[in-house]
């Protein structure tokens, strides 16, 4: 554990040098999305026949989905290029593991760092939601760990993959065929039930749909316990598999 904390310290030290550059997007992403989609598009949805989605204003429906999606995007950003360049070019992880730190400590430390990083963007996102009146404080706070867990469910398996790479060639592919489709088809913008029946079972085993479902259940209330357990189970499973896989791939790459 001690060694994992050292790796986290390194990440924080490194973040201290770069956080200003990311600050703008951290704030801007939620503001823009909530403004454009929530308020803009929401006016049409709420003005249509039923009035909102199932009686819920569109902004309230959408915001938890965007929170979870934002965690996914952040996770993707942190777990591809920085990991590959760290092992291939800067050799950061090689430097760490020539000290008492072991590859699995590096993985544990990175996981801790991802929690911190995801917490930062999620806290900011929820704060903006509160500002727009898209949620209230209680559910807002509860949604933060859900967003973190959703982000980790992406980040850990991607980290495991990225450390095996020697170039960035595969990363646009991951973005195009995993991140972007999931963003659109995970129930963020419209209820999952509107997906073709064939796609629905697939959606329910992907991390984002479950993260959105859980966050929205908290935001709107009336969380179905069975569904919530399923959502949590899927997210935790992705994290656990990602962690175990990353321990293997880091070990393979660092200990040859």
């Amino acid at each position: 554990m001690n060694h994992a904390i050292r790796v986290l310290e390194y990440q924080l030290l490194s973040y201290r040098r770069t956080w200003r550059g990311g600050l703008f997007t951290t704030f801007l992403a939620p503001v823009m999305f909530l403004l454009a989609m929530g308020l803009g598009l929401g006016t049409f949805v709420d003005g249509s026949a039923g009035g909102g989605l199932g009686g819920v204003p569109y902004l309230v429906f959408l915001a938890p989905g965007l929170l979870a999606s934002n965690a996914m995007q952040t996770a993707a950003g942190e777990s591809m290029y920085p990991i590959m360049s760290g092992i291939t070019w800067n050799r950061i992880y090689q430097a760490m593991t020539s000290t008492p730190i072991r590859p699995r400590d590096v993985v544990a430390g990175l996981a801790l760092w991802l929690v911190v990083r995801l917490a930062i963007v999620s806290v900011v996102f929820v704060a903006v939601m509160l500002l727009f009146g898209a949620t209230s404080i209680g559910p807002g706070v509860l949604m933060i760990p859900v967003a973190i867990l959703t982000g980790l469910a992406f980040a850990l398996p991607i980290v495991a993959f990225s450390v095996t790479q020697r170039t960035d060639a595969m990363f646009p592919v991951i973005n195009r065929f995993i991140i972007v489709p999931l963003f659109i088809f995970s129930g963020t913008f419209f209820p999952l039930e509107q997906l073709p029946a064939l796609l629905q079972p697939i959606a329910w085993v992907t991390p984002l749909a479950n993260g959105v479902s859980l966050a929205r259940g908290i935001a709107i209330g009336g969380l179905d316990p069975a569904l919530a357990v399923w959502n949590l189970g899927v997210l935790v499973a992705y994290c656990a598999v990602g962690l175990a896989w990353a321990s293997r791939t880091f070990h393979r790459r660092l200990v040859q």
């Binding site: 001690n2 060694h3 050292r6 310290e9 390194y10 030290l13 490194s14 040098r17 770069t18 800067n90 050799r91 950061i92 090689q94 430097a95 760490m96 000290t99 008492p100 730190i101």
Partner: peptide, 22 residues
């Protein structure tokens, strides 16, 4: 092959490395 962290300063590279040794 040098394995220095280009995101950190010269001194920080040493500081954090000392931390790895507790």
């Amino acid at each position: 092959q040098d394995s220095l962290d280009t995101e950190l300063t010269v001194e920080e590279n040493l500081l954090i490395y000392g931390r790895y040794f507790d």
